[in-house]
Write a protein that binds this DNA or RNA. Structure first.
Length: 332
DNA sequence: AACGCCACCAACCGCAAAACA
DNA sequence: GTGTTTTGCGGTTGGTGGCGT
């Protein structure tokens, strides 16, 4: 049975669920309508590369845009634009893969995907925390008010305790220490590095874990009958002293997380191909629309530049994107 | 004017998880 | 603990308007 079918009177042909949907997607006063800006497009593409079809998560970084609107915009505009450029809109990789083949680029792309999945699972956890926190703080506020002031309330009541930079703490650790692209080192102090090391150990001690991770497979199911909670417990055995400090960054929400961290600890930076690609995509599209000219060589992968530097730039851009975005993001 | 095609987007649908009784 | 209701989400559909023929 769907929501509202019994408990709310019908408004014309609309039931409660339909009314709620119309409110959240259309009538809510804090919804921005109209054309998406260049910045918004870039944000959507980058976040989609990270999160896949997690429209609600993406929407948290685009204040005043609904997940439905973003989803529609992606399906009607951005997806086609990607396809037109020979980019797989699901994987965000060139369809023929030639641009990424040969050197470490293919691996880099795979790593990025792993990381994206890793982060997306953590986003889910963060979102859950935020929801719980919101419920606690909502107190006696009636549901209508709570809903209509969602953005404001989440920013002022939920996120402050976590701090503005809480979001991508692990990524920050990677970028700030330069550990990205290097073998993990024992005794590293920050959470990202520590977890990298732990991930390796954990994997070796839990042979049931799979290293699957197909592109876009955001499922948080854990293979081999190991539950998320079990994995989490296992994880904290290795890091008891950090249990309170970085709990929200627990990475092993699925099997692929282990693999993703393991693989990134083994080698290479991922390359900043997503960012460059995004820029390329958008700029190319602009050029095409402006003068009908042809795009440049399309080597958005960054060629032979300094990978570590590129990576730093890439993740910094993501961090900037996330952190500069409305602290009103319900998740961050 | 009539028709077909296409793009856009609000709305619908089904499912899962959370909340509630 | 269990069943029911509510909420949130992502995929898909259908109505509408613009455009070309």
């Amino acid at each position: 049975m769907e929501a509202g079918e019994l408990c709310l009177p019908k408004l014309g042909s609309r039931d409660g669920k339909s009314c709620r949907l119309r409110w959240t997607n259309y009538l809510r006063p804090d919804i921005k309508r109209g054309k998406f800006s260049f910045q918004e497009e870039q944000t959507i593409i980058q976040l989609h590369a990270l999160l896949g079809n997690r429209w609600s998560a993406i929407a948290t970084h685009l204040p005043k845009r609904t997940d439905n609107e973003i989803k529609n915009y992606w399906n009607t505009h951005l997806k086609k634009r990607l396809a037109k450029m020979g980019i797989d809109p699901v994987t965000h990789r060139p369809k023929n893969d030639t641009l990424l083949s040969g050197d470490g680029q293919s691996k880099n792309a795979a790593n990025l995907i792993h990381i994206a999945q890793w982060e997306s699972a953590r986003l889910e956890a963060e979102a859950r925390l935020a929801r719980q926190s919101k419920l606690r703080s909502a107190g006696s506020v009636n549901s209508f008010q709570a809903q209509s002031s969602e953005f404001a309330s989440t920013s002022s009541q939920i996120h402050k305790p976590f701090g503005p930079g809480r979001c991508l703490d692990v990524l920050k650790a990677w970028t700030s220490t330069g550990v990205w692209g290097q073998k993990s080192e024992a005794g590293a102090v920050n959470s990202g590095v520590s977890m990298t090391g732990v991930a390796c150990e954990l994997e070796s001690s839990t042979s049931t874990l799979s290293s699957a991770a197909g592109v876009g497979a955001n499922s948080c199911d854990v293979d081999g009958g190991v539950t998320k909670e079990e994995m989490e417990e296992e994880y904290w055995k290795y890091l008891p002293e950090q249990r309170n400090g970085i709990r929200s960054s627990f990475p092993f929400t699925s099997a692929w997380a282990t693999e993703s961290i393991r693989s990134t600890s083994e080698h290479v930076p991922c390359g900043n191909f997503v960012e460059k690609f995004t820029d390329l995509l958008l700029s190319t599209d602009r050029r095409l629309s402006e003068d009908g000219g042809e795009s440049d060589d399309g080597s958005g992968s960054g060629g032979g530049s300094d990978y570590n530097e590129d990576n730093k730039n890439y993740w910094n851009s993501i961090l900037n994107l996330v952190n500069s975005s409305p602290s009103d993001s319900p998740i961050f």
